[in-house]
Simulated scan of single mutants.
Amino acid sequence: MFFTPERTPLQEFLHPSSRLQYDAEFWKTVAKVAVAGAVLSAGTICCVRYLNSRYPGWYRLRGKKRGRLPPPRVGAPPLKQGEKGDAAQYVPLSTEKSHGARVVQLAVYPIKSCKEILVEAFHCGELGPELRTPFGTVHDRSWMVVTDKYHFLSQRRKPRMALIQPEIDGAFLVVNAPGMSPLRVPIQPDLSTAKVVTSDVWDHQISAVDCGDEAAEWFVTFLEEPGLRMVHHPHQFGGRGMLEMDQQVMKIDRELWEKKDKCTFADGAPYLLLSQESVSELSRHTDTPVPWIHFRPNILVGGCPPNNEDYWWRFRIGSAEFRNAKPCCRCVETTVDPKTGTFARKDVLETLKAYRTNQDPAVDDVLKFGPLFAINLGVDQTGPCSVGDVIIHLPD
């Protein structure tokens, strides 16, 4: 609006022709602001919808310290038949970090979903536990049984895999199972002649080497399913980053890991730690004691209150330093009896569901996939650890 010399600003404003021009300019500005607001709102809605579809629960994890969740909120275990009293009395969960805990057992699982190798020590590498030998390094879960489409196979579908026992014999990984001749697979395949394939773990692609027809026929025979193959992920391939996971649960887990965190064929963490006291507490509420191997940890500790490991944030074992990323959600694999290779212990999962299910709505999107038992770890400093090592807690 422009003022004329003949009229004062007030007169100019009050003049009918000026007022009409002012009104037009005013409503033009209002229209522009309204359009801009509508575009901004539509863009915000689209962004939120995209985040909700691709990263469920993203808004609930904002502001939480990257690399871990808050400690789980869980219920009390159920009373067994004939027991008296309040069920809540059975889980005096201590939130104080125990300073007397030690490593009581170490386990490496060279073949995903198969038996463990118990050891007195291993090297804590960036991809998980390592058994270093003069003939090469055996990495945790660096071999895997796959379908003809190279999709991973586990005890969830083939519980008989619990009977497959790997061993190290010089330069070979020797695989044994009831009624089968030993299968010998080289620890270090010749990558210049190896058949490199793309395998699949929870919809995430990872490069691997096909172990050949002899290994394939061995697993086909024992697991009674045609088309099975065995694959291996050499250390040179570099593992798969935790931030690259594509499966639904892994999308959420991306909030909890750091760029350096990697694993090979493990479901979703390079290390798993559990206390013997947590297992003993669980066994008090089942009719038959539950062996710790049902839960397949790499590190079994003792000398702490039950489930106290939930509150261990950063700690050192031997020369290695670890970070508690989140509780481990347990699945039907915990119901497989390691001695028989059958789904014979359904009570294990049912009991855990009764008192170790997440009850915190703020993280339900992350922890809704099963009861919580043991903790998934990221490694901040690699190095050796041994049975007997004391857990040394570090500043958060």
Rank of each mutant, 00 (worst) to 15 (best):
P72W: 14
Q381T: 11
V231Y: 09
R141F: 04
E217C: 05
K149T: 14
G100W: 02
F373Y: 15
N308M: 07
L51M: 11
S94T: 15
M1Q: 05
V379L: 07
E116W: 06
F373H: 14
T95F: 04
K353R: 15
L127Q: 00
E130I: 03
F26S: 08
V146C: 07
R60Q: 13
A171Y: 03
E83N: 01
F122A: 10
S275R: 03
T351G: 12
V30W: 09
D253H: 12
G241W: 09
G136N: 06
T8N: 03
N308R: 03
F26K: 05
T8L: 06
I375N: 11
M180N: 02
P234V: 09
E224L: 08
Q236A: 09
E224K: 10
S18R: 02
P226N: 10
A215T: 13
L118A: 12
G179I: 01
S41M: 11
V104A: 10
C124V: 13
E126C: 10
D337M: 07
D396K: 08
A101I: 02
S275L: 05
K353E: 15
R345Y: 02
P384F: 12
L243G: 02
E244Y: 13
G67M: 14
V366C: 15
G128N: 01
D396L: 13
G341R: 08
P110C: 04
F13K: 00
F322Q: 00
H139N: 03
Q381A: 11
F13G: 06
G82D: 10
F3H: 06
M250A: 14
H393Q: 07
M180K: 03
V366A: 15
P306Y: 08
C331Y: 00
N298V: 08
N308H: 10
E130Q: 06
K149G: 09
L51D: 11
K368L: 12
L367C: 14
F172D: 13
T133F: 00
E255S: 15
V103Q: 00
V174C: 04
V209I: 06
K262I: 07
P159Q: 09
L367I: 12
A269C: 11
Q11C: 02
V390G: 05
R132K: 09
P226T: 13
P178M: 05
P189E: 05
A374I: 12
H285M: 09
R284L: 08
G303F: 01
A266T: 11
D360T: 10
R60C: 10
S207E: 02
Y55I: 15
V30M: 04
M245S: 08
E321C: 13
T264V: 09
F26W: 05
G370F: 12
I375Q: 14
K158M: 02
C211H: 05
T8Y: 00
A162F: 02
H99D: 06
R323E: 14
V145T: 13
W202Y: 05
L243M: 13
F26T: 03
Q276S: 11
Y109D: 00
Q165S: 12
F26Q: 04
R7Y: 01
D267A: 06
K64S: 15
H233Q: 07
W143F: 14
A215Y: 10
Q248I: 04
